[in-house]
């Protein structure tokens, strides 16, 4: 029972309280780049969720079964980035084969998931927080993906309406998006301190 509570709390905390995009600034590039339309934002969110779950789990396993306590610990970052690049390659091949239209609409952003800070960031945070059981690592990685999807979808919804608003000329595009993100993160600050 105790483990289940920890897992549920961990999940909620990573989705809303410690949301990677709005409180840790991870994954801002796709957040600004792909959040123009809500369907694309959702697709991107799902792709990131898949990659982050896979790589979060794999990096935890590699870290704990192979690297920890050996001199090879210095190669941690290199190993992490290899795993992530491999997982992205997998998603890319899968999408190209089964969802060609979605694959085309992603364009350059798909290979760029490799360099999405949210994914490497999560792997590093799992290492930093000293998560020492596999189930928790899996739940946290999955929750991080869901949190990212949620943030990017909310943003896409706001931006679709922003197109109709009268924004000062110099603030159009990226500046107003950042200011919107600021207000959004102000709203999410309300969750701070709820857990941990």
């Amino acid at each position: 029972m105790d483990t289940v509570t920890t897992l549920v709390l961990g999940f909620i905390s990573i989705v809303v309280v410690n949301n990677l995009v709005l409180t840790k600034f991870l994954g801002i590039c796709p957040y600004l780049g792909v959040s123009g339309r809500i369907d694309m934002a959702f697709g991107m969110g799902l792709a990131v969720t898949f990659v982050v779950t896979l790589s979060g789990t794999l990096t935890w396993l590699i870290d704990h079964l192979i690297l920890m306590g050996t001199p090879f610990e210095v190669t941690r970052y290199v190993c992490f980035i290899m795993v992530i690049a491999g997982a992205v390659q997998l998603v890319e091949m899968y999408l190209r084969k089964f969802f060609p239209s979605l694959y085309d609409s992603f364009g350059i952003f798909l290979p760029l998931i490799t360099t999405n800070c949210a994914i490497l960031g999560l792997c590093l945070f799992i290492n930093l927080w000293g998560i020492d059981n596999l189930a928790e690592a899996v739940v946290l990685s999955f929750g991080a993906g869901i949190g990212f999807t949620m943030a990017i979808c909310i943003m896409a919804g706001i931006r679709e309406n922003l197109n109709l608003a009268n924004v000062p000329e110099n603030l159009q595009g990226a500046p107003i998006t950042l200011i919107t993100a600021g207000l959004l993160s102000l709203a999410f600050m309300g969750f701070a301190g709820m857990i941990r």
Partner: peptide, 12 residues
């Protein structure tokens, strides 16, 4: 975080 986003938006 909110301050960071808004400052950068204004600077841009």
């Amino acid at each position: 975080p909110a301050g960071a986003f808004i400052t950068l938006g204004m600077l841009l």
